[in-house]
Design a protein around this nucleic acid. Sequence first.
DNA 1: GCTTGTATACTCAAATCTGACTAATCAACA
DNA 2: TGTTGATTAGTCAGATTTGAGTATACAAGC
Lengths: 171, 171
Amino acid sequence: MDRHLLLLGLLRHQEMHGYKINDFIDQQMDFCVNLKRSTAYYILDKLCSDGYVRLETEREGNRPERHVYHITPEGEARFQALLRENLANYRPPVFAEDVGTIFQQQLPRAELAELLQNRRTQIVAHQKRLEVLRTKLPPNHHAVIEHHLLHIAAELTWVDRMLVTVEEHHE
Amino acid sequence: MDRHLLLLGLLRHQEMHGYKINDFIDQQMDFCVNLKRSTAYYILDKLCSDGYVRLETEREGNRPERHVYHITPEGEARFQALLRENLANYRPPVFAEDVGTIFQQQLPRAELAELLQNRRTQIVAHQKRLEVLRTKLPPNHHAVIEHHLLHIAAELTWVDRMLVTVEEHHE
DNA sequence: GCTTGTATACTCAAATCTGACTAATCAACA
DNA sequence: TGTTGATTAGTCAGATTTGAGTATACAAGC
């Protein structure tokens, strides 16, 4: 449902055609949502058939027809409801690395340390990337970036703890 | 793929029938993976058709037939590969609340504060739940619980910062 | 005026995921 | 012995998601 909220929120600000919506998401939101282009079209379709979005076709020059999505009054109400629901509720995220962690003792300590070091490098790289992003994205994204940076710090703390444990026993 | 890893990891430890696998996941893993019963059956099917798992039917008393899933040598190799891939790579999680955060300025400050307070309560409740779980789950789950507790702490820090910001401007 | 590349704008089949449903056995109690 | 409820063990239609593919237009260089 958060992706419905996202699309409604964007269309609420300005009507758009699918391609532009997707471009915007790829450029500004990619770091915090997971929405493939084809999925976006699917959801836009759904929002239409649910009456939250209205479709108009327009043509610019000789280019092929474009479907322009406009939000409807029902869509506005839906946006309001979804926004409140989103902000008021906590849904714990799923961490991909948890599954591997459960089985980590299956590996020799030296190899485990190496794998974790590799992951650590990726985390730091991602941290850097977000710090750069922070200077480039508009201010209404700053809270979200701070959110991610806080979680990345937590992730680093955790990996480092695991590394200490692994290397400790290695001696 | 992490759910493939999970199922292979469980079957590697002991062959099982689908119902038991699902029970185990519901009781021990529910807090860290997202795997519906019907999805588990689907994935088990897939693992079979990929040759990673072998199916045997057995019958206990007059009960209906049970499909018992055994891991194959190929499955064992697959497990080893997936485990290494899982541990060596960082994939940033998606946080549902990010979308709402982008649109938060659409709401009156007082209401926003109320919604965030509500979420805060849920976070604390979840924290308590995990602290209880920690005393109940076997030690190989402790690292995962610590992982979640660290992220929950980050989440609390973040909500509290947002609350401060909101209430500050409210005066 | 031809070719190469990029931007525009999706469509669709196949893979995956889910909630709702089915159906048999057994234990316990009335 | 009839009924109620828990346990076992899934199935399946429908919803969702994805990667790969399609098709046109315009710009720029040669």
